[in-house]
Simulated scan of single mutants.
Amino acid sequence: MTDTETAPARPRLAAPASAVAAATGAAFDEAIALTRRLKPPHFRRAMAEVIPTAKAQRWEPAEVVRALLAEEAAGRDTANLRTRRIRAAFPTGKTFHIWNEEASSIPVPTQTPADAEVGRPERENLCVIGPSGTGKSHFCEALGQAAVDAGMTVTSFTIEDLGAFVRRHRVDDSVSKAISRITRTDLIIVDDIGLLPVSPDAAEGFCRLVDAAYERRSLAVSSNLHPSGFDEIIPKTLATATVDRLLHHAHVVVTQGDTHRLAEATTGRGVVTLG
C-alpha cells in the first residue's frame, strides 16, 4: 500500500482486547499466552525480568522489544551451537584451548584457527600427515570445534566409522543418499587413515565421500600415510581418482617428532598420582 492509498475502513469495536487486558491487569498473561502460541521460548523466559526492569527504569517501548528479541536471539544461538556440536559427534572434545603450540611440529601460524580454517567458500581441504601421537587427531578435532563455534556444521568420522556407515546403508541400497546427506555439512573430518588396514567397505565409503564432496564441501583428513601412498591401503583404481580429488584444493600439513603420549608417560604426566 502506498502513502497515497487509503486503508479500508474497519468495524469499530466497543474496546480493543488489549486495552481490556491492560485495564484488568491481564496484559502480561495475554503476552505469555501469545508467546506459547508463537513459540519464542527465550523471549518468554526473559519477560519476567525485562518487563519489571523496563517499568522501573521507564524504558521506551522500542527498548523493551529490543531487549526481549535480543534474549531470544542469544538463546537460539546457544541452542543451535549445542545442536551443531552434538551432531558433529566429536570423539573426545579436544579444542585449541588445550593445544600445546610448543609441542607441535606444525608451523605456529598454521596452528591458529583463523589460518587453519577450512570450510570456507573456496571449499579447500586439509590433509594432516605424520606418525602416531604427533597431534593429528587433536588438530583436526580442534579445527572442527572452531568451525562449529564459527557457525558452521561439521561431521566427524574415523575411517572405520565410514565402513560401518556403508554396511548399514547397503542393506536398503541407500548408500548414495546417505553420502549425499553427509555432504550437506560444511566440514567433514575423516580421522585415522592408515593406522589399521582399511576394510573394503571403509575404502568404498571414503572414495564415495571424497567424490561427493569434491569442490562442494571441505574435508579434513588425518593419516599416517601421505595420500600419494593411499594405494597401499585402498585398491589402486579407487585410490588414484580419490587422491586426485582430495589433493586438488588441499593444504598438506606434516607432523613430525616423537609421540606426545609416550613423552607424557615417560615424564610421569600421563597419570594422576594415587593418593
Score class of each variant (00 low, 15 high):
Leu196Asp: 13
Ala26Asp: 15
Trp99Pro: 01
Gln256Met: 15
Gly93His: 04
His260Gly: 05
Ala150Asn: 12
Thr6Trp: 09
Val254Asn: 10
Val118Gly: 03
Ala88Gln: 01
Val128Gly: 03
Leu262Trp: 07
Glu60Lys: 14
Pro52Asn: 08
Phe230Asn: 05
Pro91Ile: 03
Gly119Tyr: 04
Thr266Gln: 11
Ile189Trp: 04
His169Cys: 07
Glu101Tyr: 11
Ala202Phe: 09
Ala22Lys: 10
Val154Cys: 06
Arg87Ile: 02
Asn125Val: 03
Thr78Glu: 12
Leu13Phe: 06
Glu124Arg: 15
Pro200Ala: 05
Lys39Met: 07
Pro121Asp: 09
His249Thr: 09
Val64Glu: 09
Gly194Ser: 03
Thr2Tyr: 01
Thr24His: 14
Ile98Asn: 15
Phe157Ser: 01
Ala263Lys: 15
Pro52Ser: 08
Asp172Pro: 03
Gln111Trp: 08
Ala150Met: 05
Ser18Ala: 15
Ala241Val: 13
Arg217Phe: 00
Val20Glu: 14
Ala17Met: 08
Leu126Glu: 04
Leu225Phe: 13
Leu209Ala: 06
Ile32Pro: 00
Asn224Ile: 07
Ile193Cys: 03
Ile189Lys: 03
Asn100Arg: 11
Arg66Ile: 00
Arg120Asn: 13
Ala265Cys: 00
Glu124Thr: 15
Leu143Lys: 02
Asp186Ala: 15
Ser156Pro: 01
Gly119Thr: 04
Thr153Glu: 12
Gly270Met: 10
Val198Gln: 05
Thr255Val: 05
Leu13Ala: 08
Ala14Met: 08
Leu38Glu: 12
Val272Ile: 14
Leu209Pro: 02
Ala164Val: 04
Arg85Thr: 12
Asp211Tyr: 10
Leu209Trp: 09
Arg168Leu: 13
Ser132Pro: 14
Ala150Cys: 06
His260Cys: 06
Arg12Leu: 13
Gln57Ala: 14
His260Asn: 11
Glu124Met: 13
Thr78Lys: 14
Lys136Cys: 02
Ala48His: 10
Arg76Asp: 00
Thr237Val: 12
Asp191Gln: 11
Arg217Leu: 00
Pro61Val: 07
Pro113Ala: 11
Leu38Thr: 12
Val243Trp: 02
Asp192Cys: 00
Pro235Lys: 07
Thr183Met: 09
Thr237Trp: 00
Gln111Met: 14
Leu225Gly: 07
Arg208Lys: 12
Ser180Phe: 08
Ala56Asn: 07
Ala79Gln: 13
Asn100Ile: 00
Pro197Met: 09
Glu72Ile: 07
Asp77Met: 07
Ser180Met: 06
Ala56Tyr: 00
Ala15Gln: 15
Thr273Trp: 04
Ala74Ser: 11
Val253Lys: 01
Ala14Trp: 08
Pro61Gln: 06
Thr183Glu: 07
Leu162Ala: 04
Asp172Leu: 12
Asp3His: 11
Thr92Asn: 09
Thr6Gln: 14
Val50Trp: 01
Ser199Arg: 06
Arg12Lys: 12
Thr153Cys: 09
Asp192Tyr: 05
